[in-house]
């Protein structure tokens, strides 16, 4: 007898009563899937998939950078250093701008000026600021922008 006739004998066994219980076990699995897992378990399952894990990590990192970055602009920081009374007097033209400048500590002032220069350089090379509008920062330009406040 060749393998073709002999080989059809069943090689595989199952535990006793397996096929009697299988329909109920399938029904239980269907019920379990209907109820579903709690929302946090399903969310965890989705987030643990590699394609989502990378996106979520990037989003979390971006949120952390945004949260911990300084949220005040340089103008706001500059004004925070100036006494409210002097600002009121300045706005009512009772004090010259030089008096205002004196109120800002020197190291803070240099830092602000440095940031302004870097920013303008970046604008120039990004092409966001037309060349004719790019002027070196002077105390007068600070004064005019402060007056607008």
């Amino acid at each position: 007898m060749s393998w073709y006739e002999e080989g059809k004998k069943n090689l595989f066994e199952v535990p006793e009563g397996y096929f009697d219980e299988l329909p109920q076990r399938i029904q239980r699995r269907i019920e379990a899937k209907k109820k579903g897992r709690p929302w946090y378990a399903r969310l965890q399952g989705v987030l643990m998939q590699p394609r989502w894990a990378v996106s979520v990590s990037v989003a979390v990192l971006a949120a952390l950078v945004f949260w911990f970055s300084p949220n005040s602009t340089k103008h706001e920081r500059m004004i925070q250093n100036i006494d409210d009374q002097i600002l009121i007097e300045y706005l009512s033209h009772e004090v010259p701008s030089s008096r205002l400048i004196e109120e800002v500590p020197e190291d803070e002032w240099e830092e602000i000026m440095g940031e302004l220069e870097i920013e303008q350089e970046t604008w120039k090379y990004d092409g966001q600021l037309p060349a004719e509008e790019h002027k070196p920062t002077t105390y007068d330009s600070i004064e005019s922008s402060t007056r607008q406040l």
Partner: peptide, 12 residues
């Protein structure tokens, strides 16, 4: 849960 004769194993 595997039984069967030699030829069935070899075929599998």
């Amino acid at each position: 849960y595997i039984s069967g004769d030699e030829i069935s194993r070899k075929l599998q």
